[in-house]
Structures are given as C-alpha cells and as structure tokens.
C-alpha cells in the first residue's frame, strides 16, 4: 500500500505514482492533518501537487535522496506543535 492512513496522518510509502493521486485526494478530503513521507521512495507530480494544494504540513524526511534534497523544501515542514504559519509570522515580527 502506498497511501496509508493512520488516524490523522496520511503516510506516503514506497512508490506514490500518478494512480495513487485519487486515493490521496480522498484521504485529504476526509480530513487528515498532516502527511508523513518517511518511507517514500518516489513521488509523482500529481501527488506532490495534492500535497501542496492541501496546505497540510509534512512530517519526516523521504527515503529517496533526490526527494529529500529537492522536494522537501517545497512542502510545509511539520512543526511539533501545529501552530498556524500566520501566527508564527506575527510573533516573529514582534521579536
């Protein structure tokens, strides 16, 4: 299984191909809170664009070095406490 759901985390594992985009979209639509791509070795553009469009944070580091190097900076990194980005910005401005 390449798209797996455990509670509010969508796990992207092994090869996430274009065919998996439908399943991924379904999981996103059913109210997940974050992704985890620790076991991901391949991510198709169709899956990446869903991740970006969902604006959900991404946990972990993908197994594939190219993904870790180039795709990781594209996604919203998961911070331990899920604080909205806007709130962070305003705090930083004050600091």
């Amino acid at each position: 299984m390449t798209i797996r759901r455990a509670e509010n985390v969508i796990f992207l594992e092994d090869i996430c191909a274009v065919e998996d985009a439908d399943a991924l979209l379904a999981e996103i639509q059913s109210g997940a809170a974050m992704f985890d791509w620790t076991g991901c070795t391949f991510l198709h553009t169709a899956c990446l664009q869903l991740i970006l469009a969902s604006r959900l944070p991404m946990r972990g580091k993908p197994e594939d070095p190219a993904l870790a190097r180039w795709a990781a900076p594209l996604v919203i990194p998961y911070a331990v406490e899920d604080v909205p980005r806007d709130a962070l910005k305003s705090i930083l401005m004050k600091a």
């Binding site: 594209l74 990194p77 962070l88 930083l92």
Partner: peptide, 18 residues
C-alpha cells in the same frame, strides 16, 4: 518549540507561502 523552529525555517525560507 514551534516558535523557534518556525523562526529558523522562516530565515531559511522567507519566500511567501507556496
């Protein structure tokens, strides 16, 4: 911790949201 890691991330990547 979130505030600090976000601050560092913000510095590394000040670009606007995707």
């Amino acid at each position: 911790n979130a505030l600090l890691s976000a601050a560092i991330a913000e510095f590394l990547d000040p670009a606007a949201p995707v």
